[in-house]
């Protein structure tokens, strides 16, 4: 995974609350067995006109279809972003589309974990700060934000400055681009010891009758 230190990039405003993972990547794209290539399906239904003679063609009113947001790497959204299904395809689609960071008041738990595993930095700011950034991204041409993971700050050139909290270990993994499994395997000896003991608990075995014979 690509390490994240500091980026300055175009920010796109998605002024909606409770953006669920079904919207981020609809079900029909979950049948693929690949891990890449989901960017073109990001917000698939919202990006397309749903009814009428032009059904299926790009909806010019959807923010990510506006030419001025092409190349945005930072997404600003309302509270509870990423709620619903556990599909990691949502994180893959955002990442593949080019997003490196999402700013919102709150995020759903499973999505929070999935984003981190794909090098996407999720930044929680207050509702007021997010409202201000949504407004500036909508009003200001070529509105760029600087996200520094090292300093845990979000800034713009109009004087906006906010700090954000992040778990130190998560920060370490994101800045280094570390593989979780490799990190866990540092504890292989402890795991072996624990597992040997834990296997004695027959009442925690999934298939007791086969495990015991």
């Amino acid at each position: 995974m690509e390490p994240f230190k500091t980026i300055t990039a175009l920010a796109a405003p998605l002024d909606r609350v409770n953006v669920d993972t079904d919207q981020i990547i609809p079900k029909q794209f979950l049948k693929r067995i690949e891990r890449s290539g989901y960017g073109e399906f990001l917000f698939f239904d919202w990006r397309r006109i749903q009814e009428g003679p032009n059904a299926g063609s790009p909806d010019p009113s959807f923010v990510l279809n506006e030419p001025r947001y092409a190349g945005a790497k930072i997404l600003i959204a309302g509270k509870n972003f990423g709620c619903g299904s556990s599909r990691e395809h949502a994180a893959w689609a955002l990442s593949d589309f080019g997003f490196r960071a999402v700013i919102a008041p709150t995020f759903a738990d499973i999505f929070f974990s999935n984003a981190g595993k794909n090098g996407i930095v999720l930044i929680k700011l207050s509702e007021e700060d997010v409202a201000l950034l949504l407004d500036r991204a909508a009003q200001t041409p070529n509105y760029e934000l600087t996200v520094s993971l090292e300093n845990q700050t979000v800034t713009d050139t109009q004087g906006f400055h906010a700090t954000f909290e992040i778990d130190p270990f998560r920060k370490f993994c994101l800045t280094e681009g570390l593989d979780d499994i490799g990190l866990t395997l540092r504890h292989a000896a402890a795991l072996d010891t624990f597992e040997k003991q834990h296997d004695q608990a027959n009442w925690l075995k999934p298939k007791f009758s086969e495990a015991s014979v």
Partner: peptide, 8 residues
């Protein structure tokens, strides 16, 4: 969990 965690 997500797919990265499934692998984990």
């Amino acid at each position: 969990i997500g797919t990265s965690e499934v692998e984990h």
